[in-house]
């Protein structure tokens, strides 16, 4: 265990993944769920970079994949926030379990 060991980075990435899943189940607001998704994507990026540093034949490939993950995360945050604002304007609530139209 240390900065020259693959397992350390993978374990930090596992922590980020599990924390993100826990937060997504537990949070009662859309922004909280978006924050958890960002945690999961960060864990994915850290995983790719760690495997790239220790195992991959070409170190540029992992960096490119991490750039792709960042681009997708940025798009997802922008779309998510615009959806949240639209839903908030229509329903006036942040609790996802209180948003229903068909039950009424």
């Amino acid at each position: 265990m240390g900065s020259e060991s693959l397992n350390t980075y993978l374990l930090v990435a596992v922590f980020l993944l599990v924390a993100g899943i826990y937060g997504m189940v537990q949070k009662r607001s859309f922004i909280g769920m978006l924050i958890s998704i960002e945690l999961i994507l960060n864990g994915a990026g850290l995983n790719v970079m760690a495997l790239n540093r220790f195992l991959a034949p070409d170190p540029a490939v992992g960096q490119v994949l991490t750039l792709f993950i960042m681009g997708i995360a940025a798009t997802e945050a922008a779309i998510g926030v615009s959806f949240i604002l639209a839903v908030y304007k229509k329903f006036r609530t942040i609790d996802p379990s209180r948003i229903f139209t068909m039950k009424r």
């Binding site: 960002e38 998510g80 604002l85």
Partner: peptide, 13 residues
């Protein structure tokens, strides 16, 4: 991303 999320919190809630 943090600025976008701060913006969402400030405007929406």
């Amino acid at each position: 991303i943090c600025i976008v999320l701060v913006f969402g919190i400030m405007v929406g809630y």
